[in-house]
Design a protein around this nucleic acid. Structure first.
Lengths: 406, 406
DNA sequence: CTCACTTTGTGCCGACGCTAAACAAAATAG
DNA sequence: CTATTTTGTTTAGCGTCGGCACAAAGTGAG
């Protein structure tokens, strides 16, 4: 007398897409889920129930007050409070940062740290992972994976950092392997009791991912992000919701577009590259300032733009940099034809100093810019590299929740 | 008494992928189909039967002679002889060409034509479509769609030719609409009795598609194609088997990368662009030759390279162009990180004149070129733009054979 | 307040498209 | 000739989803 032999579960195939919709805030109700997934209400209901059973979302059946709309009101779909989190980590020139990031890109907890001695990767990443472990213990949450953002090109599939310029790490350091080893050593365990999977990405790349899902890049199909943090210029492209990192992870090395004919020499062997003509150091030099000892080059540049923009020298330097940046962006527009461009770091501040000037340079130097120009926007998320690192860890869950949490 | 109520057809979802495998020559037997699709033998058999019933493929059960392998020999899967064809058309500086292209990229019939007067689009495309209609009548084949390759950027989703430079057409000509109107006027009908669907693409873009499926680009995941036919330089990118044309069809406008600091002025407003520094006219000028009246600039350049390469001036000019081309390719490698690069037109001949020289320039100027360089190859298909135009028309059938032929 | 209407949520059934497994067929190897 | 290997086919069964009927929960008109 078999009682319940196999209850046929509906909506297995749509679990991942449904979770992605909740994650990016595009499905706040079952009715929206039905419309976005293109399935029947029955399937959408089963999907929501399954995600709730997995502890990922919460279905709030309470009435939401007068909505004004006709018909039976929808139940709200929220991220499950106290649900699983990803461990996010970031290393940069001045230190590191660990955080817990829940579904929806919400930063649950964060812990900064400094690197007094820019030591070897195992040392730094060990400290980051330990900070993350402390956050996890304090929160009592389940961890589904760990992501790390590094200021360097990351070669695929090896996961090595090719140019960790201002980290004093050796070129070609096996970052993914070291990170995984530290996860193993510290013992960050997932819901299955095994060490969580770990992921490493370039900081601008993962920041672009975060902006696409939770920030100023939402709903863009071809999102280009260009940013300059400390030294050099980084780029990223999100195509159809996925990072485009090229065949070996080395795409969007946008720092070596020529923007000044016969300009200053670049370490790549060429001259006048964006990398050396449009980063914070180039800006400070163009403004006739010598970099001071306190604050990063980015902070000094931002402060200069904010506080001394009335100074003609600063204003002129900003427009010189805007011109160089605009030429670089125009080259990228000609090759990639994005439907939106986000700017980060110094470029965000340059853009906000004179948005129309940058738009004009891009339009003038891109082939079809005058007919229909590309929307330029500023990055909108705090800590987008951290959130993006977490996106890497969340990705397997978004692709197939059952495989991870089933 | 219902006799055959609904015979449950197996393998509907895999029909398109299976047809693509036969189309690209990667599934010559049902056993290979089973392996490539990742389904059971039962499903693969049903898929093959369905495709045969649709008249697209032929299952050849005859023994193939001693194969040397153990076990029961596979039946061969061939393109169905006499099966449906796509109408392919190409317009270029000197004239036009129409062809019928079957599954597998095989050119079944072709008809050249000249444009004595570079007339308006409707005139030219009317003549092309009429030539295609004649081919269709003579062949007695079924037509599943029509594709057109034009030497101009094609804006999406409007389907307008933005810069039909050497066609004497107005910029912004509604090529897709005019082509569809001519298909309608001449009455090219599909299997359903309606006028066939029509498609328009840039010639280098569709050539890249053809090379990816039937030529030197097979199995590349990130394929970059750069070519120069008459004037200017065109590019294309095939990502995961699909053309990447950007958000508005305007990506891969590679002609405006700077390759000569303060070089000759370009119509884009900048200087030293690939477009004016690495096309056939630039090569003839670099070699000290004045373009003659007979033969296209490309033909004159090719003949010069083939017949007078011993001339030091020609040799030197070739290396000047190779240097400029290599710098441009290196810039693209930094941004796109392809796993293969194909060269067409003049660039093919320059590459074949001195392959190592071009490889060295690309490696020297790309950021990670010295560690692992990108394979450079020559385009391998005759008439790759024609075959590529047909690929546009075949695409709906490859995506869902039943929807088109069911 | 009641009734009509609109929209959302759920249970049941059947269809579709696949896998699994057993069997049949066609070759090679010894 | 028999054993083995690989391929092709048939049958049964199962998981997932759409369609449909019905229930539930609101708005709006009178």
């Amino acid at each position: 007398m078999t009682q319940i032999r196999t209850r046929l579960e509906r909506g297995r195939g749509a679990l991942g897409p449904a979770l992605s919709l909740v994650h990016t805030g595009r499905a706040a109700t079952r009715a929206l889920l039905t419309a976005e997934l293109g399935v029947t209400r029955a399937t959408a209901g089963a999907v929501a129930a399954e995600l709730e059973a997995l502890g990922l979302i919460r279905v709030d059946t309470r009435p939401l007050g007068p909505s004004g709309a006709q018909g039976r009101p929808s139940h709200r779909l929220d991220v499950a409070p106290g649900g699983p989190v990803a461990l996010a980590a970031q290393v940069h020139a001045d230190g590191f940062r660990a955080a817990l990031v829940g579904l929806g890109g919400e930063i649950v907890a964060t812990a900064p740290g400094s690197m007094t001695v820019p030591a070897d990767p195992a040392h730094v990443l060990g400290a980051v992972v330990e900070a993350g472990a402390a956050l996890l213990r304090a929160s009592g949450r389940v961890c589904i994976g760990a992501g790390l953002a590094v200021p360097s090109a990351v070669a695929e599939p090896e996961g090595t950092a090719l140019n960790p310029l201002h980290l004093a790490w050796p070129a070609g350091a096996p970052v993914r392997q070291v990170f995984a080893e530290q996860i193993l050593r510290v013992g960050i365990l997932g819901p299955d009791g095994e060490p969580v999977p770990s992921f490493v990405g370039n900081d601008v790349n993962v920041a672009a991912l975060a902006e696409h899902r939770h920030g100023a890049g939402r709903d863009a199909e071809h999102l280009l992000v260009v940013a300059s943090g400390h030294r050099g210029v980084g780029g990223a492209l999100v195509l159809g919701g996925r990072l485009h990192t090229g065949s070996a992870g080395l795409a969007l090395e946008v720092g070596h577009l020529t923007v000044v004919p016969d300009g200053r020499p670049c370490h790549c062997g060429s001259r006048g590259c964006l990398d050396v003509e449009a980063d914070p150091l180039a800006f400070l030099e163009a403004a006739g300032r010598t970099p001071g000892p306190e604050g990063s080059l980015l902070q000094q540049s931002r402060d200069l733009l904010r506080e001394e923009y009335a100074d003609p020298a600063v204003r002129a330097a900003a427009h010189v940099l805007i011109d160089r940046l605009g030429r670089g962006l125009a080259g990228l527009v000609n090759v990639l034809n994005p439907d939106r461009i986000l700017l980060g770091g110094l470029h965000l501040h340059l853009f906000e100093a004179d948005p129309e000037a940058l738009r004009a340079v891009v339009a003038d130097h891109s082939l079809w810019g005058r007919s229909g120009s590309v929307p330029l926007l500023a990055c909108a998320l705090d800590h987008n590299s951290l959130v993006g690192a977490a996106e890497l860890a969340w990705q397997p869950v978004l692709d197939d929740p059952l495989a991870v949490l089933g």
